[in-house]
Design a protein around this nucleic acid. Sequence first.
DNA 1: GTCATGCTTGACACTCGGTGACACATGGGG
DNA 2: CCCCATGTGTCACCGAGTGTCAAGCATGAC
Lengths: 204, 204
Amino acid sequence: MTSRPAETLAQRKRQLVADELTQAALGLLARGGFDAVTVDEIAAAAGVSKRTFFRYFASKEDVVVQFLTGLGAAMREELASRPASEPPSTALRHTVWRSIDACAGQTERTLRVVQLILGTPALLARFLERQAQWREELAAVVAERLGLDPATELYPRLAAGMALTAFHTVLQQWSESDGTKDPAVLTDGCFTVIAPALDAVAGE
Amino acid sequence: MTSRPAETLAQRKRQLVADELTQAALGLLARGGFDAVTVDEIAAAAGVSKRTFFRYFASKEDVVVQFLTGLGAAMREELASRPASEPPSTALRHTVWRSIDACAGQTERTLRVVQLILGTPALLARFLERQAQWREELAAVVAERLGLDPATELYPRLAAGMALTAFHTVLQQWSESDGTKDPAVLTDGCFTVIAPALDAVAGE
DNA sequence: GTCATGCTTGACACTCGGTGACACATGGGG
DNA sequence: CCCCATGTGTCACCGAGTGTCAAGCATGAC
């Protein structure tokens, strides 16, 4: 009676283990900090071996940063789907907002994860690494929208960089305010500041 | 005949070892990449033990990223020394230029180091981590210049973030062009793009 | 010249993140 | 019933990074 008998059976078991691992990791890392908890402990708490942990996550950081997976692709798609007639500031604001909204959706857990990331150097580094990737991807889309050569033109990378600076700043403020401040308001605030630069130039 | 007999004696020996280590590391890492070379090999090439390597550098990444040390402090000082009457875009452009100039000074070696950093995930992550620190520091100075509260106001962090985005973009373009493009021109180009956002707001 | 002091180093052992190899279980399809 | 595929545990291993201790070597006092 399963609507999807094939392929879901094994995959749901897999998802189950992954969830268990994530749950255990987040619980342990929340108290004690990132360095104080070993992978062995996380695996033991989830009832699997260390080896199995690494079959699910590429690194210890990945357990925490995993929820960012696909965010880059989502942003790129969102930006690509915005009408080309839209000014860059509007298109990018929607792009960033999509990510913020996806992050800040289930407020409680996500907030603590974000605080953990921003407060742990090793995690922050991974996070920043991802952002750097996203910047390249977004820059490519921006360049395409405007018909610019991303290799020679400065604008695409700068625009993508500014948008991600806004993204990061919103997350910071949100995290530091313990979820008090409204992400939507923060996002709009950021984009009113950077919009003049985003919309001023266009071509050359 | 030494103008400074005291305290320099031991410290110059230390500097000698550090230089030897850096030299060996950069040489080995240039070919083979970052992961292919072990700390033991670097230490052996410099004629010291692995343990001694870690007495000079906190991590394997540090050997490469070390030349960034003090760059953050230099930027902060530069920004703090700019007249308060100067528009933010001008002050920040000089701040960034100071770092670019310090980096791109001895073109040949620095270029390869920058290319190594930007092309190696682990190194890029460390680099980005530093930038994040600098951003906080610069944001604090910007806030002070304008008499804003960095905890509630969005502008300082955004301004610092945009400046560092410019910094990063210049380094990227410079590195990808194999040193062909002029860093000074690139820096000016970046700041003409972001200046509208930097100067538009000021207070509220 | 000799001894005491303090800093630097090497050697060793150890922890922890991460990977490769192999062996074992389960489960589904011929 | 057997075969194959996938997921898992165990074990061995590598490399980064740290603590400890003893030896080397400089300096300075007597």
